[in-house]
């Protein structure tokens, strides 16, 4: 048994954020909520979604692994309206996940389940020396600047406690510098200077579904994966992106 009702807008955002990196996913559902961890096809990035039971208006579930094609879910959620309620319902007999959208009309969709067995993929518990809390819009703007000069970008913490988004091409260079006085910065927790370099296309995919006022928690170290977390309603979404190393 699995039946859960949530506002369509939040679920759409969760699917949008996930499907930028991953083609298919296995939702591990139980009495506490929905969890899913997946790597992108190149195994460069990892996405982890946690939608606790209290996010839902109604939630009843036993333990199930629900494997779905994210592109199909994305298309269906693309048809959802923000004032609609979404009920997710597992049809174990037909091996399908039903999605029922309700407001003025009742619209029913049904998607086939994939045999994406739960990978038991765990998010590695990495300790980071630095954490930046920044508005998503500001970070996305800095990535756009960096993109003008190269396809990768360095995320740096300077010795004097600044957060620097730095990109260098063959002839050109781009740099966005934030410090504790910047309005877009909500907090900088810094213990040491650090620098890691990342593929820009991945960072853009990771931040694509964000609204400009979403608060990103960006965890940084030297030649370490970047961890980027934000909340969608009560749900939490986490990305890990492996660095480029010299």
């Amino acid at each position: 048994m699995f039946k859960a009702t949530i506002n369509a807008k939040d679920f759409k955002k969760i699917i949008d954020a996930t499907s930028n990196l991953v083609d298919e996913i296995c939702f591990e559902v139980d009495e506490n909520g929905i969890k899913a961890n997946a790597m992108d096809p190149s195994h460069v990035a990892l996405v982890s979604v946690n939608i606790p039971k209290d996010t839902f208006e109604e939630y009843i579930s036993d333990v199930h692994d629900i494997g779905v094609d994210l592109e199909a879910l994305k298309k269906i959620m693309g048809r959802a309206k923000s004032n609609e309620k979404l009920t997710l319902e597992l049809d174990e007999e037909k091996n399908k996940l039903n999605l029922i959208l309700k407001n003025d009309a009742v619209r029913k969709f049904s998607v086939s389940l994939y045999d994406v067995s739960s990978t038991n993929l765990k998010v590695p518990d990495i300790e980071y020396p630095n954490e930046v809390m920044i508005k998503a819009g500001a970070f996305v703007e800095a990535l756009k600047d960096a993109e003008l000069v190269n396809d990768h970008v360095s995320l740096k913490i300077s010795e004097d406690g600044k957060f620097i988004i730095f990109s260098k091409g063959d002839i050109n260079q781009s740099e966005t510098i934030y410090d504790n006085n910047s309005e877009s910065i909500l907090d900088l927790k810094i213990t040491e200077s650090s620098k890691s370099t990342f593929n820009l296309a991945y960072l853009k995919d990771i931040t694509k579904a964000t609204s400009s006022d979403d608060i990103l928690h960006i965890y940084l170290g030297s030649d370490m994966p970047v961890k980027i977390e934000y909340n969608i309603g009560n749900a939490k979404i986490l990305f890990l992106l492996a660095p480029r190393i010299e």
């Binding site: 195994h43 460069v44 593929n199 994966p225 492996a242 480029r244």
Partner: peptide
């Protein structure tokens, strides 16, 4: 030149 590494490389460390 820098090289893209895989995220799995960081699983083993932990």
């Amino acid at each position: 030149k820098n090289k893209q590494v895989k995220i799995e490389d960081f699983f083993k460390v932990n």
